[in-house]
């Protein structure tokens, strides 16, 4: 061993000692203890992670996590309230619509609407908007004279025309079934 080699060895030993000193914190000691206690589980977890890495699924999962992060970032209290309110309303509607009789009736009604509008989405919106508008009005019982008087209203005329077309569609559907 030369002087230079002795200096190198001493230097390396000192560096290792300093590194060991740096690593010997409470945190690393606790980490080592945790690893020791959970070695088998950590090995299994690491193997699962490596399998995901090898198959490319890990990249997908990270990217999906970014999308979840995006959704979280985009929301604010108002949006959560609005979405939850709509979801709740849809749930109540679904519960009502799930009744066998209601479901059969709705299917018949929708097939009639679909026969009028090629784009059924627009047709459903038309009917729903009409129902919504009626709910917002003070609805009173109407007699024959009221019917005649209101049938002169242009909006009622347009609505009646639409309803008659829906009636024709329902008639066609019920005849087919």
């Amino acid at each position: 061993m030369t002087d230079e080699m002795a200096r190198d060895v001493a230097g390396t030993t000192a560096t290792l000692a300093e590194s060991a000193d740096g690593l010997a914190t409470d945190e690393t000691a606790a980490l080592a203890e945790t690893v020791g206690q959970n070695g088998a589980e950590l090995e299994n977890a690491l193997e699962s992670l490596l399998a995901l890495q090898r198959s490319g699924a890990l990249t997908d999962l990270v990217e999906i996590a970014e999308v979840v992060s995006l959704l979280t970032a985009a929301l604010d209290d108002e949006m959560v309230r609005s979405l939850a309110g709509t979801g709740s309303g849809l749930g109540e509607l679904a519960q009502t619509a799930a009744d066998d009789d209601v479901r059969n009736g709705l299917e018949t009604l929708l097939s009639g609407v679909g026969a009028v509008d090629e784009d059924t989405g627009d047709g459903i919106e038309t009917v729903l908007a009409g129902v919504g508008a009626a709910e917002g009005e003070q609805v009173e019982s109407a007699g024959l004279l009221d019917l005649l008087r209101q049938s002169r209203d242009p909006e009622v005329k347009r609505g009646l025309g639409y309803l008659l077309a829906v009636a024709a569609g329902i008639g066609q559907h019920t005849a087919e079934n």
Binding site: E63, E66, V67, S69, L70, A73, A74
Partner: peptide
């Protein structure tokens, strides 16, 4: 995508096809 406000600066997310689909 980036999300930020008056206090927090933007930090663009790693680009991906899934964010493009989003």
């Amino acid at each position: 995508y980036v999300e930020f406000d008056y206090e927090r600066p933007p930090s663009p997310a790693a680009p991906s096809q899934k964010l493009h689909w989003s």
